[in-house]
């Protein structure tokens, strides 16, 4: 998926670090703006990245996030170490959540994270090993520019 990469950047996300939650997604948005990527694609990428980053902060111990840009599109890959997801199908349902009160106080945990990521991306692949962690790959096509 990362063949012909024009740009590949790695970031580390720390679990439970609520004060820094979302900073990597903001950085990704700024990088894509500097590269002149169309705003409609930046927006979808930033929303999906933010939801994915928040999932790591809320549920996992830590994760590596890779932002990869090719002529075809943008790929964000997140591999986390954490409890993993027991039932991915259930986690994909809108409204399903295992969030704690602390997470809800942050304005998250509505059970919209994974559905939001799917809705905003062009391709999404998720796999998880309970007790070990979750891998998420999301792709945004650069040939699909929606109307602002």
């Amino acid at each position: 998926m990362h063949a012909e990469a024009e740009l590949s950047l790695n970031f580390e996300i720390k679990g439970k670090n609520f004060s820094q939650a979302g900073t990597i997604s903001t950085k990704i948005k700024e990088i894509l703006q500097e590269l002149g990527i169309p705003m409609s694609i930046i927006r979808r990428t930033a929303i999906a990245a933010y939801e994915a980053e928040m999932n790591v902060v809320m549920y996992a111990d830590r994760a590596n996030l890779t932002l990869c840009l090719t002529p075809a599109g943008i790929t964000i890959s997140i591999n986390d170490k954490g409890p993993g997801i027991e039932d991915i199908k259930q986690a994909m349902e809108e409204g399903f959540s295992t969030a704690t009160d602390e997470i809800r106080e942050m304005g998250f945990g509505a059970g919209m994270g994974l559905p939001n990521i799917k809705k905003n991306s062009d391709k999404m692949k998720i796999s998880s090993i309970p007790g070990k962690g979750t891998s998420l790959d999301i792709f945004f096509s650069l040939s699909k520019v929606s109307e602002q």
């Binding site: 979302g22 997604s25 929303i47 942050m106 304005g107 945990g109 919209m112 939001n116």
Partner: peptide, 26 residues
């Protein structure tokens, strides 16, 4: 709920919220 705002939000939105932490601005 910020996930709701992320789901329905459109560029140009005026966001009304009772959540005053940094995630609302983010």
């Amino acid at each position: 709920l910020m996930s709701d705002a992320l789901a329905f939000g459109e560029p140009g939105l005026l966001l009304l919220t009772g959540l005053t932490n940094s995630q609302s601005i983010r």
